[in-house]
Simulated scan of single mutants.
Amino acid sequence: MLQRQLARLAEVPELDEVLVVDNASTDGTGAWLRTQPVTAELLTENTGGAGGFSLGLERAVERGADLVWLMDDDGLPERDCLALLLERDDLDFWGPAVLAAQDPSRLCFPIRLPGGTRVVHDMASVERAAQDGIIRGVLIPFNGVLVTRDLVERIGVPRAEFFIWGDDVEYLWRAEAAGARIATVVAAHVLHPATDDLGTPMMFGRTTYNHSPSDLKHYCMARNNTVNLRRYRGWPHVLMFWVKTLWFYTLTRRVPRRLPLSARAACAGLRGDFTGHRKYLA
């Protein structure tokens, strides 16, 4: 996927430099990166997506970047994506619509439209909701998003200790709390592999739950969601998340062993312990 992505980025004239964080890969990617016209940070320890984004954004700003375009290696921006994003000079943290690679008429990640509780999965609904070509206050980080140097200097970089899952939401909510101007530019697109488990309907279709078959991902999700909700949304939202977890794994998709794992993760989050995920690393 990285090779395909770098080939696409080579076709984007607006880029000044490409910086790749190799997260202690063992498949020869690090050696291959040394042969490519990119700046490579080769880590000796797997720090997860959160650690990669944290270090990458820090290094980009250190190297003098005024604007940083962030993405995972499994996203593929359309050739005009960055050009369309750069047409906006009135935002601090903004990005494209993230479409399912398997079906670009649908969103890869469902979003809640502003001003209500409606969650949409299709691109047509996003286009109808847009005003002046954007949806303000909505963003799916870190999938082809732009962040200004000024915002990074104000709020810092993503929390590396989150490892995976929730670091993007935490950074978005931190930016919101700082008064950042946030939006999705609906004409700009990134394709991303979709998974059917994200946004699984539950509670008779009234809400959704982000299930993952991976114990590692679920542990990080349960821990980091607890931390994020407690800090930015308050205890009622924390309790609702715990109720949803109990409901999902007892009624919606019965996996009883997930409940003690979820409890351990939530308690670790409340203690500020970000080491427990290591036992699930292969």
Rank of each mutant, 00 (worst) to 15 (best):
R154Q: 13
V126R: 06
G75Q: 06
A60Y: 08
W165I: 10
A60S: 14
G199L: 13
F241L: 04
F274Y: 06
R231W: 11
D122F: 14
T245M: 15
R154K: 15
G205Q: 11
F163W: 03
G199V: 08
L259T: 06
A100P: 08
A282V: 15
L239G: 07
G75A: 13
P213H: 10
G133D: 12
S262N: 10
Y209T: 01
V152D: 00
F162D: 05
N224F: 02
V21G: 01
F162T: 05
L113F: 09
D168T: 09
L9D: 03
R128Q: 14
T252F: 09
L113Q: 06
R174M: 04
D215P: 04
H189A: 05
G28Q: 06
I155H: 01
A268D: 12
G95M: 04
V157D: 03
C220E: 02
C81F: 02
L70M: 14
V169M: 11
G205W: 12
R223I: 06
W32F: 08
L86V: 09
W247T: 10
A160Q: 13
Y171T: 02
A50H: 04
A188E: 02
P104N: 10
G48M: 03
T207R: 10
E127C: 10
E17N: 12
L86P: 03
C108L: 07
T250F: 11
A265T: 02
L259W: 07
V190M: 03
M240K: 15
A10S: 09
C108V: 09
T35K: 10
K217E: 05
K217V: 10
P158S: 08
G272A: 07
G144L: 01
T208F: 15
M202A: 02
D215K: 14
H211Q: 12
R63K: 14
L113T: 03
V169T: 11
T39Y: 00
V145S: 00
E153Y: 06
P213C: 04
D80R: 07
V238W: 03
L42I: 15
R181N: 08
T245N: 08
D80K: 05
Q102A: 13
E78R: 14
Q102K: 07
H121G: 01
M202P: 00
P96H: 05
A101H: 07
K244I: 09
L246Y: 13
G95T: 06
T117G: 10
R88T: 01
H192D: 05
T195M: 03
T117W: 12
L57T: 13
A183M: 08
R79P: 07
P37G: 04
T117Y: 13
